[in-house]
Design a protein around this nucleic acid. Structure first.
Length: 785
DNA sequence: GAGCACTGC
């Protein structure tokens, strides 16, 4: 029994207590939260007569010198200072609940710090209200609308940017998209000249920086959730540090949830230590969180099989613990579906059948990103009812990937089971391969998972590892993305941002030199950077596309082959998650449907065929489902395609097509070669094994590959390292094209010996005999759309 | 003969 092996470590880090200084007994009101506030604030909420008589709610406000007292008065004014309309009843109701937020009682301190400093680091645990309140405080002090500027607040995820913007619009009593808006990919909910508080994804702000490196539209920029260390936030932090030195009028706030604040503080020190100035860290503003305490348990011994241990723990909780839902963290789809099945069987067999009067029913819900949205929604269903009146209530068990750690919040979770693993991307710059590996999580991640148990009431977290391992084996923080990924895209973006010397760019964590070198090398081969590492005209246009450099290159050169209309579709299809559905009980039918859409010359052509068929069958709502395709992914491909088309039009990349199918397919494969010549494999021997060019990795065609033969030369979109190394999404190419379209990369002098080199040599020799026949330009034809 | 941790532009 696992319960005997657990050690109890009560956690005190999650509860919020107001500081004694702020407790004042003189005025009790109905709302118990108000007792936490200083009298000035409580007074402001309930007596509006003095301030309402003034006509102008913001009279006497000096930008960036505003005091808390003034803001509270304005918030309580009869008129909304930004719309000049009377505040609604809803506004007043929300305002009252805002007073309960820990951050609200620290408004005075925050505004003072904001007035005095250009850069602030802010730490607040979950539930402090920093994401909704701090940008509003900033707005009241900075008054961006009076100077035609904006306050921006970045988020790592679209949904967060959109939902927080809606909430803040409600809190400020304005219509979403007017004074308060958001900007995410495919959707700009702002109004030029009206919006002054904008929530946006970090990637979106980075894109804006590429066209305006001064970010001159913004008076204050807030980077929220900085502890997540997304690639975009990391790059922005480096940019803003430099920019703040040039733009003294720009204020920067970096907000983070965990205690890596010291790192941000010293990074964002404004003084120039190189100039001999004494460096002093950026000031820290700290807000306590407001979640419930979570008791943490560890196992006494390491668990040899975490999947089995997780199932055992869930059944133990179900038997022995009070009502409340359970959240288990596992690493992937297969594991999750497997565990769901096993829990269901065990629970039915051992618990319910044995004694339905002592143990309630149990329902198991899987959760991962590729699950159709409708099935994802099941995590919000209520727990099952007792099997009959008077019997114990049922319990819901959510079995989830990391998606429940940050992206999705499930209320009602009281128990968390944490085996301590997740799948993480690891980048190997030597062979330019990103792969997904099951790895131990970090302490920060473990804490985040535990916190998921304390959102609605005190909870418990069962860690399926020892406390000793937690302390000594787990890393403090998850390695930031910038240290784990292929940086080709980031390097192109930085070049576009005017960063010439990447090695000396001020990164919070500098990437491995080899990763940077690999990125520079790739961009140089693609002719996005010249031999001096400077951005070329082509590279400048490539950076404008929200695509990996290979895809951008292929798209931009595709008009030369008269197939840009098709390449546009293929690019969109390669930018979205897998479209093929293959439910375990319908594999045969799914494979059959796929075979109907397969083009034997290559998987890229199959993707094109899928999208074209989808477009032609738009009036049939069941088309995607009937063909075992993801309607969500196809709709996204349509969105991406439309966005790319707009960018093509903006930069005069013609959209053209060839009528003859045979010529068209050859043109498509040639254009593919121009982008992906570095991802080519050559067949070695007869057993269907391939060797990647230059990297010399032995790979096999992925079983999902639709080629009907095993061509000598193939180009692949993806190298996946699972049970074996596979290449996925594969199309046949001709070796002549490699020599013609990528002569630098396929310079035979740069090859070590081997069958690949000999094969290329034969082709080169053959070509030499015929190469004096020049290429004739073909007339351009514009597609009418 | 096998997947797809998760974001983002």
């Amino acid at each position: 029994m696992i319960i005997c092996q657990l050690t109890c470590i009560p956690s005190s880090t999650f509860s919020y207590r107001p500081s004694p200084r702020r407790l004042n007994s003189c005025m009790m009101v109905g709302n118990p939260y108000l007792a936490h506030l200083p009298p000035s604030q409580r007074g402001a909420v309930h007596s509006s007569s003095s301030s309402s008589s003034e006509k102008e709610p913001l009279s006497g406000f000096l930008p960036r010198k505003v005091k808390g007292e003034q803001v509270r008065k304005a918030m309580n004014h009869q008129l909304n200072p930004f719309t000049k309309q009377p505040h609604s009843a809803q506004y007043r109701r929300i305002l009252e609940t805002r007073h309960a937020l820990p951050v609200f009682s620290q408004m005075d301190d925050f505004l003072e710090l904001f007035s005095k400093n250009q850069i602030i680091v802010m730490v607040g645990e979950t539930g402090a209200g920093k994401t909704t309140q701090i940008p509003q405080f900033v707005t009241y002090s900075d008054l961006p609308h009076t100077k035609g500027k904006l306050v921006a607040c970045t988020q790592p995820r679209r949904v967060a940017a959109m939902s927080v913007a809606q909430r803040v619009a409600d809190e400020m009593d304005v219509q979403l998209g007017k004074q308060v808006g958001y900007s995410v990919r495919f959707e700009d909910m702002t109004e030029s000249g009206t919006t002054f508080l904008k929530y946006m994804t970090d990637g979106m702000l980075l894109r804006e920086a590429m066209s305006d490196t001064e970010l001159s539209r913004y008076s204050t920029i807030i980077l929220d959730e900085a502890h997540e260390r997304t690639l975009a936030t990391d790059i922005l932090m480096g940019l803003l540090k430099t920019l703040a030195k040039r733009r003294k009028d720009l204020k920067v706030i970096v907000m983070s949830a965990t205690l890596d604040a010291v790192k941000f503080q010293s990074f964002l020190s404004l003084h120039d230590s190189a100039a001999g100035e004494k460096s002093s860290p950026a000031p820290l503003f700290k807000v306590p969180g407001r979640t419930h305490p979570v008791e943490v348990f560890y196992t006494q011994e390491p668990e040899p099989d975490y999947v089995e241990a997780a199932i055992r723990t869930v059944l133990m909780i179900h038997r022995a613990e009070d009502p409340g839902d359970i959240l288990i963290f596992l690493t992937g789809e297969e594991e999750i579906e497997d565990v769901c099945r096993k829990i269901k069987t065990d629970a039915d067999a051992n618990l319910l059948n044995a004694d339905p009067s002592s143990v309630g029913p149990l329902v198991c819900v899987p959760l991962y990103s590729s699950l159709p949205l409708q099935q994802q929604q099941r995590i919000f269903d209520a727990a099952p009812k007792p099997s009959q009146a008077g019997y114990p209530p049922g319990r819901k068990v959510v079995v989830s990937t990391n998606i429940a750690e940050t992206s999705l919040t499930i209320d009602g979770i009281v128990y968390v089971v944490d085996p301590g693993f997740s799948k993480q991307t690891v980048y190997n710059p030597r062979i330019r391969v990103e792969s997904s590996l099951v790895s131990p999580i970090s302490k920060a991640s473990a804490q985040q998972r535990a916190g998921r148990a304390g959102r609605t009431r005190p909870g418990k977290c069962f860690r399926l590892y020892t406390e000793k391992d937690f302390i000594s084996e787990l890393e403090e923080q998850t390695h930031p993305e910038i240290l784990r990924s292929n940086l080709a895209n980031a390097v192109l973006e930085l070049s576009k941002l005017g960063i010439k010397d990447l090695v000396r760019f001020d990164f919070l964590d500098a990437p491995a030199p080899e990763t940077l070198m690999r990125a520079l090398e790739l961009l140089n081969y693609l002719a996005a950077l010249n031999d001096e590492g400077e951005l070329t005209a082509l590279g400048g246009v490539m950076a404008e596309f929200p695509l990996d450099p290979q895809l951008a290159k292929m798209l931009i050169v595709s008009p030369d082959f008269k197939v840009s209309n098709e390449i546009l579709t293929i690019t969109a299809m390669l930018s979205i998650p897998n479209v093929w559905l293959r439910a375990p009980n319908q594999r045969a039918a799914a494979d059959q449907a796929k075979a109907m859409l397969t083009v034997p010359e290559g998987d890229h052509l199959t993707l094109l065929n899928v999208f074209n068929n989808y477009s032609q069958n738009k009036d049939d709502r069941n088309w995607a489902r009937n063909n075992f395709l993801s309607a969500r992914a196809l709709a996204e491909a349509e969105n991406v395609r439309a966005q790319l088309l707009r960018t093509m039009e903006k930069y005069d990349v013609d959209v053209i097509s060839l009528e003859d199918e045979g010529k068209r397919n050859i043109g498509i494969r040639q254009a593919l070669t121009c982008g992906f010549f570095m991802q080519v494999a050559h067949k070695e021997g007869e057993k269907g094994s391939y060797l990647t060019v230059k990297d010399n990795q032995v790979v096999a065609l992925h079983p999902s590959c639709g080629l009907d033969t095993q061509p000598e030369w193939v180009l692949f979109n993806e190298f996946v390292l699972t049970k074996r190394p596979y290449i996925r999404t594969v199309t046949e190419v001709k070796p002549e094209w490699l020599l013609e379209y990528a002569p630098v990369y396929f310079d035979l002098a740069s090859f070590s010996g081997g069958e690949t080199k000999r094969a290329l040599q034969r082709v080169a020799n053959r070509r030499r005999g015929t190469s004096n026949r020049g290429k004739e330009p073909r007339p351009k034809k514009k597609l009418k759309k």
